[in-house]
């Protein structure tokens, strides 16, 4: 792809380095926070949902599944939120220098990916402690990660393009994300949507068609325990492929729209 010619690679590199360098600048323990923060947040989630509210009491390793779900969700929300404002917040740069605009979104994604990686390591460590046995299915992890990246980046492209023109999108997206999170089985097990925990309902099927639900459940299925219900288990095969194909489509669509509009960013911002 033309985005990755030499000049863009250098710039992407520098932007990622800079963002990472600045993230914990001025804090006493610096980079250590990138590990400590997820560990502490996980502890909070664990105590609230697993100990107090007793969500997913019947699901094996639900605590691990919960953390994994949150990790995936955090990546999605970071890429879309940061991606959305990234073009506008670098407007200063855009008005003064000519460079490939998608680089900005990619640099945001790369930094979110670094976070995602660190969180994932913490989750996997936690899984081992919790007695999860990894199987060769773990090899699906990279593919599902790619799907997650394509989906998040595609949406980030669309949001960034729109946000340049319509700043109302900020609060709108925040509310939407909140609703979207609860519509995705992250803090509750999918079985909670079933009648009496066994009968598959129509709304469970529809909710499982959203790519985020599919990704999270597939990850739980392959990484933690086959007990976790996946999209293709409860949705007929004739439509089960939809969420898988949706991610690359959204990515290509987002990228196309973004590239078409990016020539004008410097004038509008």
């Amino acid at each position: 792809m033309k985005f990755f010619d030499k000049k863009n690679k250098i710039l992407l590199n520098e932007l990622i380095k800079t963002d990472f360098k600045l993230r914990y600048q001025g804090s006493a323990i610096g980079y250590l926070w990138s590990i400590l923060k997820p560990v502490l947040l996980f502890l909070v989630l664990y105590v609230v949902f697993v100990r107090f509210l007793r969500f997913g009491a019947g699901v094996p390793h639900f605590a691990v599944a919960l953390l994994l779900g949150m990790t995936v969700w955090n990546f999605f929300s970071e890429v879309t939120n940061m991606g959305m404002i990234s073009i506008v917040s670098r407007g200063d740069l855009m008005r003064k220098i000519s460079f490939s605009k998608p680089i900005i979104i990619f640099s945001v994604t790369a930094n979110a990916l670094i976070n995602f990686g660190i969180n994932l390591i913490v989750v996997l460590a936690f899984a081992l402690v919790n007695g999860v046995r990894f199987t060769p299915k773990i090899l699906f992890l990279p593919f599902l990660t790619v799907e997650l990246i394509l989906l998040s980046v595609g949406i980030a492209f669309l949001l960034a393009t729109l946000f340049v023109k319509y700043r109302d999108l900020g609060p709108v997206w925040e509310v939407f994300l909140q609703a979207f999170m609860y519509a995705t089985p992250i803090i509750y097990p999918v079985t909670m949507l079933f009648t009496n925990g066994v009968g598959v309902t129509w709304y469970a099927r529809i909710l499982m068609l959203n790519p985020m639900a599919q990704i999270i459940q597939d990850l739980r299925y392959t990484l933690i325990d086959p007990v976790n219900i996946t999209t293709w288990q409860i949705v007929p095969m004739s439509v089960a492929w939809v969420p898988y194909i949706l991610s690359p489509i959204i990515f290509m669509f987002g990228l196309t729209v973004f590239n078409k509009q990016s020539d004008k960013f410097a004038e509008i911002i």
Binding site: L11, E14, T18, K21, Q25, K96, I97, F99
Partner: peptide, 19 residues
């Protein structure tokens, strides 16, 4: 152009150069 106040002069030269 693209200077970042939180980075050192040296880092800014490299960042600016990359841009």
């Amino acid at each position: 152009v693209g200077f970042n106040p939180e980075l050192t002069g040296k880092e800014n030269v490299y960042l600016n150069g990359a841009m």
